[in-house]
Amino acid sequence: MRELWNVSSSPHVRSHEGTSNLMLDVALALLPATAFGVYRFGLYALCLILVSVGFALLTEYVFEIWTGRENTLMDGSALVTGLLLGLNLPPYVPLWIAMIGSIFAILVVKQLFGGIGQNIMNPAMAARCFLLISFAGYMNQFPALDGMSSVTPLTAMRNGEPVDLAAMFTGLTNGTIGEISTLAILAGGLYLLVKKVIDWVIPITYLGTFALFMLLFSGRGMDVHYLLAQLCGGGLMIGAWFMATDYTTSPITEKGRFVYGILLGVLTGIYRLWGASAGGVSYALIFCNLLVPLIERMTIPKPFGWEGQKNG
């Protein structure tokens, strides 16, 4: 018999769903997009993903040893960061780009701000933006593939060229490794919804607002083909389902999630219509990440029983 029973404050039971389960689910949900990217761009793309995942894990491990912190590799968050960064790289950048991006994501964006849950920007997105600014040449190169154009569908649309919507939906286009197949991303997003890892609010308000914004301001009016191509193009889908839903950098309040999704939709629209490059999801995400503390502060809900009342 034990001499003493455990004593702690209630509740005495815990949900079996822990941080590592959630992160593993996100990684699983990214598998279709990963597999399709490797199928489309070949083994070199797989190498890029492995390097970015590997260096994300290594950076986290070394930093934690160096600073005498508890090892957090098993929570799975560095894995997800590395994977997301890899999927957001063009398919033929040099391996050292992936390496630098991963180190920046984990060291500067995540660990220097306090580690998991403390970063003010999504590490993978911030690293992508860092790479876009620092190595614009590499990061905007999409070599021609099996006779297809070396421009991404978004750039083509900007130049007024026609795009193949079906190819964009299935993923037979050019772009970063993980963003090309809307179908694969939606499959992953659906998995996250069904497993209740994410809820619908942010992706749907983001995509909905973006579509509405383009309808009003693109000058194309009710051009369904154009709208759908905009929705399927670039990093919007992977951004809406996997980046905007990042726990740490999105609002935890219910109303805040709506505000965040709407802001993302509007900003992405602005960047896509009037920004310097054809894309804009990365910058919209980073910008809105920084607004999250403010959004949360302004959307603290009225408690139950105080709705519409001043006090409480």
Partner: peptide
């Protein structure tokens, strides 16, 4: 089995599950 002992606390990841679970409509994370 004491689940409190089995599952050691880790850092908050701001997932918002506490907000969804709170029947009083509060924001436990804050």
């Amino acid at each position: 089995e004491d689940e409190v002992e089995r599952f050691a606390p880790t850092d908050c990841i701001r997932c918002g599950r506490c907000v969804k679970a709170c029947p009083a409509g509060l924001v436990p994370q804050k």
